[in-house]
Design a binder for these strands. Structure first.
Lengths: 160, 160
DNA sequence: TATTGTTATACTCTATAACTATA
DNA sequence: TATAGTTATAGAGTATAACAATA
């Protein structure tokens, strides 16, 4: 798992004040490279008829967390409001979400998934995750546990 | 860290044959969402004068691993050969890499970083990683260790 | 005929700036 | 004046298809 040559407790990097070197790697640099490449791989992991990852992701958020505003969605997904607006337009045109004006505040709208949107999330996610699921299944329980914990830590970091 | 409500050893998900539920989360789905959002955050983490993440990443590879072919680069970065070719064109136009014909095989070219390219990687990486570095520094040793291990596991999975 | 690199073309994602409507 | 949403516009990233040169 970790590099046995450098992961000893005697590793000076662990003892000194450089938290970016762990087990002999520059953690922030390595992590940046991993995220970029893994992200491309996951985005490419879809049939041409599927909706794109950028559309599936906010739709899945709506299905899981319930209706919310465009602003909340853009913050969650870490894109600009106009970018999210375009994504919502696309989802709406496909009949996967609906816009509803807010009764209390006339400036706001609420985005909700349609039944069709809900179904698409379940179906697509199942097929889309097949590759990653397969990779994870090949790992040990301990390795999956490590990834789950890293996921939790990193999600806390990027919480909007 | 993990959800205490579901992370007990008695959790049926852990004992049964569904490796995609760990500590009560759908690991592949959660991971996909994390990768997308964290990737956007990292890509946005740059001054407007910096080169883009898509350019920095292969340039950094060349600096770390030495000259290689466009094909190798595209496989490593998980982009198509034409996409990588465009990136190389851009880097070459900026004087950050050079193309050299291969002596043995006339079809091949080798991409090498220039001295200017090397310097840019070091400078940019230092500034670019500042945010992530800062976040990691706020974690405990154990948490950084977990992330480093997850990094190693996932890199092995996407190895081209 | 297969492989490596490249060009042509089209489409998605993304941001910044500007505009509209409401608070 | 501030906020939420949207439209306008432009640029970067990406892929597939087609082409050229060499093995």
């Amino acid at each position: 798992m970790s590099n046995p040559q450098e992961s000893t407790s005697g590793n000076p990097d662990r003892a000194t004040a450089n938290p970016d070197r762990v087990d002999g790697i520059e953690l922030s640099t390595e992590l940046r490279s991993l995220i970029m490449r893994l992200g491309r791989l996951l985005r490419n992991q879809r049939a041409s008829s599927d909706i794109t990852e950028g559309q599936l992701s906010p739709l899945a958020y709506l299905v899981r967390n319930g209706p919310t505003t465009p602003n909340k969605l853009s913050k969650w997904e870490r894109v600009s409001p106009p970018s999210m607006n375009r994504t919502i337009n696309s989802l709406e045109a496909q009949g996967l979400v609906v816009r509803t004006p807010d009764d209390n505040d006339g400036r706001m709208v609420v985005i909700s998934p349609t039944e069709s949107g809900r179904e698409l999330v379940y179906e697509t996610r199942r097929r889309r995750d097949a590759w990653l699921h397969h990779q994870l299944a090949a790992l040990s329980d301990a390795e999956r546990q490590t990834i789950a914990e890293a996921n939790t830590i990193l999600r806390a970091i990027i919480e909007p």
